[in-house]
Computed example of a mutant assay.
Amino acid sequence: MRKSQHGIITPTQATIIIISKTLSVGILTLPRTAANDVGTPDVWIALLISSLVPLAMGFVIITLNQRYPNQTFYEYSDLIVGRFFTLFISLFMILYFIIGTIFAVRIMAVVVETYLLEGTPVTILIVLVLWLSLYLIVGGITSIARVFQIIFPLTILTFIVIALMGIGLFDLDHLRPVLGEGIRPVFNIKSMTFSSLGIEIILIIQAFMTDQHKAKKVIFLGVLIPTVLYLLTLVMVIGALSIDGVTNLTWPTILLIQSFEFPQLFFERLDSLFLIIWIMQIFATVSISFYAASLGFSQLFNKDIKRFIYGLLPILFILSMIPQNLHQLFWLADMNANVGIVLFGVVPCLLLLISFIRRKVQ
């Protein structure tokens, strides 16, 4: 694959893409899912443990990528396991990115309709985001990375502002006692591992990096920064609302922000400001997932990527309208996350092992 066909990105841009892929719906739902899984104030410890999973996955993936420089997974897997298995694995991977796209865009539409634009048809919101994503990804990976560079600092700034404003509601007792029920609960890390998925995009974007020797640094920062932001969110929400207080809340982070009272500020609805930035982050997640799925079809069948970008657009819209409620939507996300753990945790290990064996035999 020639990089010039799709563009090039710097290691910094690659890091931002990974972070943007990771930070999405989990910001709103992680406190609830983590509280339900762990059931103790030690959710922050469980989050730190769970961050080791994507970190390990990432280092395995870049080790595999570095054996086939300048090629994406869709291209080099053919050299390892042949055409048939490549099609099988790659189609599952494409399906994973498609489901990730429709989940993010549908959740975005539901939240916006509920909190920002009440009464606006969900279909309109979905079409708008998908069309904007299409407009972005047609420009290639370089255009995607540049837009993400604009969104990223806004996201960091928003997190810092919200954390500072939440100090007044924070109660340290809600995070005590530490390990009061022993160490076993903190290993219930399933939901937090799912929220950390995003590192898998390195299978695609490392081929476009200008300096692939910095891939380890990209992985480390791509896991560290989302972990810190998720940890900040988790501690602030649990610290303000308590474990019992968040277990039955669909969007606990939004409720916390709505609790802020600063009448002296000109901008009083801080939840609206937060959601505007969050929508940008969801847009980033949708765009890179949409691009990864389109690129997969393009490289598998050796056709121009634009025909798959335009072809996937109506399919994504139709699929995003299938879930009838949030319960079905979250079930779909959980199922996709389970598939993702196998695809990006187990499959790269097997391919790396096969690659080593094939090289030794030759």
Results as ranks from 00 to 15, higher is better:
residue 255 L to G: 08
residue 48 L to R: 14
residue 140 G to T: 03
residue 6 H to E: 13
residue 249 L to Q: 15
residue 251 W to R: 12
residue 13 Q to M: 05
residue 29 T to Y: 14
residue 361 V to S: 12
residue 24 S to L: 03
residue 53 V to F: 13
residue 208 F to E: 11
residue 151 I to M: 12
residue 326 L to N: 10
residue 105 V to C: 10
residue 246 V to P: 04
residue 86 T to A: 09
residue 9 I to P: 04
residue 120 T to C: 10
residue 91 L to I: 15
residue 112 V to I: 12
residue 216 K to W: 14
residue 114 T to Q: 13
residue 184 R to S: 14
residue 126 I to Q: 06
residue 291 Y to I: 04
residue 57 M to V: 12
residue 343 L to I: 10
residue 92 F to M: 13
residue 97 F to H: 02
residue 151 I to W: 10
residue 290 F to S: 11
residue 303 K to E: 10
residue 279 I to D: 15
residue 305 I to C: 05
residue 354 I to L: 15
residue 166 G to W: 01
residue 179 L to V: 06
residue 117 L to T: 12
residue 319 L to S: 07
residue 172 L to C: 06
residue 307 R to L: 14
residue 261 E to A: 11
residue 34 A to L: 10
residue 231 L to K: 02
residue 99 I to Y: 00
residue 235 V to N: 03
residue 241 L to N: 03
residue 231 L to N: 01
residue 59 F to Y: 13
residue 348 P to Y: 02
residue 127 V to D: 12
residue 7 G to K: 03
residue 133 S to N: 02
residue 318 I to D: 12
residue 78 D to H: 14
residue 177 P to L: 02
residue 62 I to N: 00
residue 131 W to S: 05
residue 26 G to W: 05
residue 60 V to T: 14
residue 336 N to D: 05
residue 136 L to P: 02
residue 108 M to E: 09
residue 173 D to K: 02
residue 83 R to G: 15
residue 285 T to L: 06
residue 349 C to K: 04
residue 106 R to Q: 00
residue 67 R to V: 01
